[in-house]
Design a protein around this nucleic acid. Sequence first.
DNA 1: GCAACCTTGTAAGGCGTCCTGACAAGGTGA
DNA 2: TCACCTTGTCAGGACGCCTTACAAGGTTGC
Lengths: 163, 163
Amino acid sequence: MTRASKKPDARVPLTGLFGVALEAMLEDFQQLLKETEFNDIRPTHGCVFRFVKGDGMRLTEIAELAGMTKQSVGEVVDDLVVRGYVQRIPDPGDKRAKLICLTERGEQAQATGFGLFAEVEKEWIKRYGAERVTQMRALLEEIAANEAPEAVPELARPELAHV
Amino acid sequence: MTRASKKPDARVPLTGLFGVALEAMLEDFQQLLKETEFNDIRPTHGCVFRFVKGDGMRLTEIAELAGMTKQSVGEVVDDLVVRGYVQRIPDPGDKRAKLICLTERGEQAQATGFGLFAEVEKEWIKRYGAERVTQMRALLEEIAANEAPEAVPELARPELAHV
DNA sequence: GCAACCTTGTAAGGCGTCCTGACAAGGTGA
DNA sequence: TCACCTTGTCAGGACGCCTTACAAGGTTGC
């Protein structure tokens, strides 16, 4: 205590705490996912599953949402095609473009994934308290909508939330 | 609204929110760091700066704390040596081992880094409210101490906090 | 209709971060 | 002393992402 004044900023940086929380939650998620038939899905695939909608999206659009290059997302899509989760169908209105859409299996995987995320969150609510977790979620949603609106279109444009 | 019941789990997963918050805060930090003389420090270097203490630590120990392999941390240390932030001195009590310790420049960088993290947090408190951010930090600290105690020794063993 | 320009997606190659496997040198306990 | 463990390093590779360059297809203005 006598030396406490020597390190006024010695608290663990918030970035570290975010990182630990992210990693822990992702591990819980992967653990649950491993028990399903979709156990070949890796975190990287999330950049597609998070955004792709039923009626198909263009690579360019997904890349913008994910904040990645078209090439990088293209690689992920290639992988998901091989695994049977998505397919590229020609855009009827533009011969350059292809619509990336979920296969039936892909739809199931997406629904399962979102369901498991909800499950993990419920588990954390049990562990740490509903009020605290809910408050944290609310703040994080506000932060996300503020700091990276393009990454969370559902929050930035609430009118699309039920599409 | 009529279709709201179709997607009960359509909230943005917490992992995504953690990721966005982490990225945004890290960017704020790097922005500030860029203005200092320590602007060649990258996020990867954090695995050493976060843990290394004044009187030196072994590679093995840092690797365990960081949850990485010795080889990976060794690579980071190599880089930090080249940049003049740390040095390896032979362990007097064990000829196999080397103590990794901060140079004077390294100590300054570490202090600056922790200071900037505190500054960014203050900025976020201004933006989002002291009470909410403080509550979030408290919860995150509890989560971290629970889910990955080895990664946050200060929290898991509070008696060391003022070392 | 056509030339200049933009958009969409892909191919090729590279970089950074992390891993696994194998090992030499040094410590440790029977 | 011998078998075994620990410490750190070398070599090689996986993975996720990037940059550069380009062909094919739209779009705009004349």
